[in-house]
Amino acid sequence: MAVLGLYNYFVFAVLLMIGLYCLLARTNIIKSIIGLSMFQSAVFLLYISMDKVDGGTAPIIQEGVENQIFANPLPQVLILTAIVVGISTTALALAVAVRIREAYGTIEEDKIQEMDRKQ
């Protein structure tokens, strides 16, 4: 059961690998960026999983309730930052993709490589 209880870590690992594979295997820039996004999302899942405390609730002190168990708030805060970073990266990558499309007329990496070689 202990192993099954760690299922979200398995999801993290699988998601990470799917993202990485997608990133490496696709020549289409947009599809690679999707892979990159998945790759990062996997890490969000890792951080969120680790803050879970059995029976824990949101870490807000309520009056009159004693001996509450809280989930660890720090990873949530950290991952909020990481999510922002991830969004920025994706946005920037997409912006570059748009510029690449303008400059080369395609977003297929192998075609671009061919055009560069001719230059």
């Binding site: 990133l23 820039i29 990062q40 890792l46 990481a82 990558a93 570059v96 993709a97 510029r99 990496e109």
Partner: peptide, 22 residues
């Protein structure tokens, strides 16, 4: 070609940074 270089750097850089984060 600066654009495509940037794109490759984004990919590699993000993977590197994410590894660090993990």
């Amino acid at each position: 070609r600066a654009l495509i270089s940037t794109y490759r750097y984004i990919v590699m850089g993000t993977v590197g940074a994410t590894f660090y984060l993990i």
